[in-house]
């Protein structure tokens, strides 16, 4: 990889020119290829803590599971398996990854979780959609490809319309942005036009969906986008 330059007295420069997350990128690429070959769609949900990932995903899993669709979810948190227990009320298979302090999921963690889950009897290759609920964080998950086919960035109406402007790096990696908790929009004085403008400023042309897991508003379009 490296080509040693100057030989002789003094410092010697090794030219490396390699991505620091190369190992993760390569593994993620291999996983994406394998998922695609098996016909498994992988959706990576990323947002700040408390923006409604678990609620939306529970409702999503419940509806798809009731429709007989083969869906499952992996959820990452620093500690506790509370979210896995919430998601499991949907009836779909769910697995918790506890990162013990790490602020994001990495491809290897997904690979390990799927291997352990496979050993426990989950037929990963027969899934239609695998959801990954990332650790709630708007910075750290940006650079970690998990082999997903769709990266969804969520923001709730309670967070402030300018969230995308504050975290352009992550929003810029979104394949789809979902505005959640729309049932609370009026109570929060949510300025929809400002939010849409902020999203467009950091990810021009990105697909935008608006949902409420409480009222069910927007869920049909959301389900169509992820299944």
């Amino acid at each position: 990889m490296s080509s040693a330059a100057s030989v002789g007295e003094g410092p010697r420069i090794l030219e490396v020119r390699t991505k620091i997350l190369k190992k993760n990128d390569e593994l993620a690429r291999e996983m994406r290829t394998n998922f695609a070959a098996a016909g498994v769609r992988v959706v990576n949900l990323v947002s700040s803590p408390g923006s409604g990932k678990t609620r939306l995903l529970t409702e999503t899993l419940r509806r798809l599971h009731e429709m007989g669709r083969a869906v499952a979810a992996i959820v990452g948190d620093l500690e506790t398996d509370n979210d896995a227990r919430r998601l499991a009320t949907s009836g779909a298979p769910v697995r918790q990854i506890m990162t013990h302090g790490l602020c994001h999921l990495e491809a290897e963690m997904i690979q390990d979780a799927l291997a352990a889950w496979g050993a426990d009897g989950l037929a990963v290759a027969s899934l239609e959609t695998l959801f990954i609920e990332n650790v709630g964080n708007l910075v750290c998950p940006t650079s970690w490809d998990l082999g997903e086919s769709l990266r969804v960035v969520l923001m709730s109406v309670t967070e402030g319309e300018d969230k995308p402007l504050k975290y352009p790096g992550l929003f810029n990696t979104a394949d789809c942005v979902v505005i959640t908790k729309c049932d609370l929009a009026e109570a929060c004085g949510f300025d929809r036009a400002a939010a849409v403008d902020a999203i467009q400023q950091v990810r021009p042309g990105v697909r935008l969906l608006e949902t409420s897991a409480v009222t069910g508003a927007g869920l049909e379009a959301w389900l169509a986008a992820v299944s």
Partner: peptide
């Protein structure tokens, strides 16, 4: 996010 080069004291 790249490792460009390494300078070795040698």
């Amino acid at each position: 996010l790249e490792l460009e080069s390494i300078e070795l004291l040698e």
